[in-house]
Protein backbone atom coordinates (compact mmCIF):
# COMPACT_ATOMS: atom_id res chain seq x y z
CA UNK A 1 0.00 0.00 0.00
CA UNK A 2 2.87 2.34 0.63
CA UNK A 3 5.12 1.28 -2.15
CA UNK A 4 2.47 2.78 -4.41
CA UNK A 5 3.71 6.25 -3.43
CA UNK A 6 7.20 5.34 -4.54
CA UNK A 7 6.04 3.72 -7.78
CA UNK A 8 3.76 6.71 -8.46
CA UNK A 9 6.72 9.07 -8.11
CA UNK A 10 9.04 7.01 -10.26
CA UNK A 11 6.59 6.03 -13.00
CA UNK A 12 5.09 9.53 -13.20
CA UNK A 13 8.59 10.98 -13.35
CA UNK A 14 9.63 8.57 -16.09
CA UNK A 15 6.65 9.41 -18.29
CA UNK A 16 7.63 13.06 -17.93
CA UNK A 17 11.21 12.17 -18.90
CA UNK A 18 9.83 10.66 -22.12
CA UNK A 19 8.02 13.96 -22.71
CA UNK A 20 11.20 15.95 -22.01
CA UNK A 21 13.15 13.81 -24.50
CA UNK A 22 10.47 14.47 -27.12
CA UNK A 23 10.88 18.21 -26.37
CA UNK A 24 14.65 18.37 -26.39
CA UNK A 25 15.89 15.53 -28.58
CA UNK A 26 13.06 15.21 -31.11
CA UNK A 27 12.57 19.03 -30.98
CA UNK A 28 8.78 18.79 -30.87
CA UNK A 29 6.49 21.54 -29.64
CA UNK A 30 4.60 20.89 -26.37
CA UNK A 31 1.37 20.39 -28.35
CA UNK A 32 2.92 17.71 -30.57
CA UNK A 33 4.49 15.98 -27.57
CA UNK A 34 1.21 15.82 -25.66
CA UNK A 35 -0.64 14.48 -28.71
CA UNK A 36 1.93 11.71 -29.11
CA UNK A 37 1.62 10.77 -25.44
CA UNK A 38 -2.17 10.70 -25.59
CA UNK A 39 -2.08 8.43 -28.65
CA UNK A 40 0.49 6.24 -26.88
CA UNK A 41 -1.83 5.89 -23.88
CA UNK A 42 -4.68 4.97 -26.16
CA UNK A 43 -2.66 2.33 -28.04
CA UNK A 44 -1.31 0.84 -24.80
CA UNK A 45 -4.86 0.44 -23.56
CA UNK A 46 -5.82 -1.25 -26.82
CA UNK A 47 -3.07 -3.77 -26.13
CA UNK A 48 -4.39 -4.19 -22.61
CA UNK A 49 -1.22 -2.88 -21.03
CA UNK A 50 -2.33 0.38 -19.47
CA UNK A 51 -4.66 -0.97 -16.78
CA UNK A 52 -2.00 -3.18 -15.15
CA UNK A 53 0.20 -0.13 -15.29
CA UNK A 54 -2.36 1.85 -13.27
CA UNK A 55 -2.54 -1.03 -10.77
CA UNK A 56 1.21 -0.85 -10.42
CA UNK A 57 1.77 2.92 -10.24
CA UNK A 58 -1.56 4.45 -9.19
CA UNK A 59 -1.49 8.19 -9.73
CA UNK A 60 1.87 7.79 -11.49
CA UNK A 61 -0.12 6.38 -14.38
CA UNK A 62 -3.43 8.24 -14.01
CA UNK A 63 -2.07 11.78 -13.64
CA UNK A 64 0.09 11.98 -16.81
CA UNK A 65 -1.81 12.90 -19.97
CA UNK A 66 -1.38 9.34 -21.30
CA UNK A 67 -4.22 8.30 -19.00
CA UNK A 68 -6.49 10.61 -20.97
CA UNK A 69 -6.07 8.48 -24.09
CA UNK A 70 -6.47 5.40 -21.93
CA UNK A 71 -9.75 6.61 -20.40
CA UNK A 72 -11.27 7.45 -23.78
CA UNK A 73 -10.21 4.15 -25.33
CA UNK A 74 -11.37 2.20 -22.32
CA UNK A 75 -14.83 3.74 -22.55
CA UNK A 76 -15.08 3.14 -26.27
CA UNK A 77 -13.97 -0.47 -25.90
CA UNK A 78 -16.39 -1.12 -23.05
CA UNK A 79 -19.27 0.02 -25.25
CA UNK A 80 -17.93 -1.97 -28.17
CA UNK A 81 -17.84 -5.07 -26.02
CA UNK A 82 -21.54 -4.65 -25.24
CA UNK A 83 -22.88 -3.48 -28.60
CA UNK A 84 -20.32 -4.53 -31.20
CA UNK A 85 -19.16 -2.21 -33.96
CA UNK A 86 -21.95 0.32 -33.39
CA UNK A 87 -20.75 0.54 -29.80
CA UNK A 88 -17.44 2.02 -30.93
CA UNK A 89 -19.27 5.03 -32.32
CA UNK A 90 -21.89 5.38 -29.57
CA UNK A 91 -19.20 4.70 -26.97
CA UNK A 92 -17.22 7.66 -28.26
CA UNK A 93 -20.08 9.96 -27.34
CA UNK A 94 -20.88 8.35 -24.05
CA UNK A 95 -17.37 8.55 -22.70
CA UNK A 96 -16.86 11.50 -20.44
CA UNK A 97 -13.56 12.45 -19.02
CA UNK A 98 -13.34 14.26 -15.72
CA UNK A 99 -10.17 15.83 -17.13
CA UNK A 100 -12.04 17.70 -19.86
CA UNK A 101 -15.07 18.67 -17.84
CA UNK A 102 -13.07 19.89 -14.87
CA UNK A 103 -10.66 21.79 -17.14
CA UNK A 104 -13.64 23.54 -18.76
CA UNK A 105 -15.25 24.32 -15.44
CA UNK A 106 -12.11 25.55 -13.69
CA UNK A 107 -10.98 27.38 -16.83
CA UNK A 108 -14.20 29.34 -16.83
CA UNK A 109 -14.00 30.05 -13.10
CA UNK A 110 -10.40 31.19 -13.52
CA UNK A 111 -11.41 33.54 -16.33
CA UNK A 112 -13.93 35.08 -13.95
CA UNK A 113 -11.48 35.77 -11.15
CA UNK A 114 -7.94 36.02 -12.55
CA UNK A 115 -6.01 38.31 -14.87
CA UNK A 116 -2.75 37.39 -16.56
CA UNK A 117 0.44 38.89 -15.25
CA UNK A 118 3.59 39.30 -17.30
CA UNK A 119 5.94 38.60 -14.40
CA UNK A 120 9.20 36.82 -14.89
CA UNK A 121 9.60 35.58 -11.31
Amino acid sequence: MVSIFITAFIVGGLICVVGQLLFDVAKLTPAHTLCILVVAGSVLDGLGLYEPFIDFAGAGATIPITSFGNALTHGAMAEAEKHGLIGVVTGMFEVTSSGISSAILFGFIASLIFKSKGKVK
Binding site: M1, I4, P52, D55, F56
Partner: peptide
Protein backbone atom coordinates in the same frame (compact mmCIF):
# COMPACT_ATOMS: atom_id res chain seq x y z
CA UNK B 1 -5.41 -8.12 0.23
CA UNK B 2 -2.28 -6.15 -0.53
CA UNK B 3 0.28 -7.28 -3.06
CA UNK B 4 4.03 -6.95 -3.37
CA UNK B 5 5.08 -4.07 -5.59
CA UNK B 6 5.65 -5.96 -8.81
CA UNK B 7 2.76 -8.38 -8.35
CA UNK B 8 0.49 -5.38 -8.69
CA UNK B 9 0.96 -5.64 -12.46
CA UNK B 10 -1.01 -8.88 -12.31
CA UNK B 11 -3.53 -7.60 -9.82
CA UNK B 12 -6.63 -8.70 -11.68
Amino acid sequence: ITLTTFSRFKKE
